[in-house]
Amino acid sequence: MSLDPEDEMQAAEFALGTLEPGERATLAARRLREPDLAAAIGEWEHRLSPLVDAAPEVEPPRELFADIETRVHGHRRSKRAVATTTPNGGGDAEELQIQLRRWRGTAVAASIVLALVLSGFAFREVTRDGAPRQFVAVLQKSADAPAFAVSINLDTREFTVRPVAAPAPAGKSYELWLIEASLGAPRSLGIIDAASVTRAGRLQGYDRAVVADATYAVTLEPRGGSPTGAPSGAPVFVGKLIPVDP
């Protein structure tokens, strides 16, 4: 295994827990689709795990198992329902998440699978020069909690945002932002719907390289979007594009 030394140290710090929030979210997402990196993180987790022997036990302040059972029971029901659910037929987001977790166990690149399943077709469009033109980003706050799947066609600069599991809080809107060093401030790509698919061509003014390299972030804004044109707070979900090609 030949891992970039910086990635090796990021894997070590991921396991120790000292990555900054953005670094941690990025590494958690990469862990799902880069087997070498995932293996390095796993090795570091294993290397440090004997330390838990010395962690003193603490009894929780209240009884929790009944609540856990209630949640688990719901999940069990969902699991049975999965077999009869068509993933792209508007299936329940909870079920999709459970499917996603199951798939991850089979070492499939889950973020890609998620995007493919949600879109209902496999895009393997490649330009004549062989460069991939279809990209996806899974915006999430942690590896297990994908919230939106964004797919972008670099040629047309059109993008599609599909919610996975992101209930919009009352009175709030989700707003999508494009963050790229050369642009300076984050650029709004508009409000995205947490309940249905958003399609838009709002990237048309941006350079192909900018669109490909940018970080995509979602913030929670007052209903209707940021009143100032700048994000009102830190992103709640972030992701980078990965090419969808063989």
Binding site: G17, V52, A55, P56, E57, V58, E59, P60, P61, R62, L64, F65, D67, I68, R71, V72, H75, D144
Partner: peptide, 30 residues
């Protein structure tokens, strides 16, 4: 649960948030 709560509650601030995290952990384990 006491071992895992010991681990979680040293990292997460406050018993409410720690209990929520512990619940998530067991749902994940399930």
């Amino acid at each position: 649960h006491a071992k895992l709560y010991g681990i979680v509650s040293r990292i997460v601030r406050g018993p409410d948030a720690s209990c929520d995290v512990l619940q998530d952990v067991y749902v994940r384990l399930w």
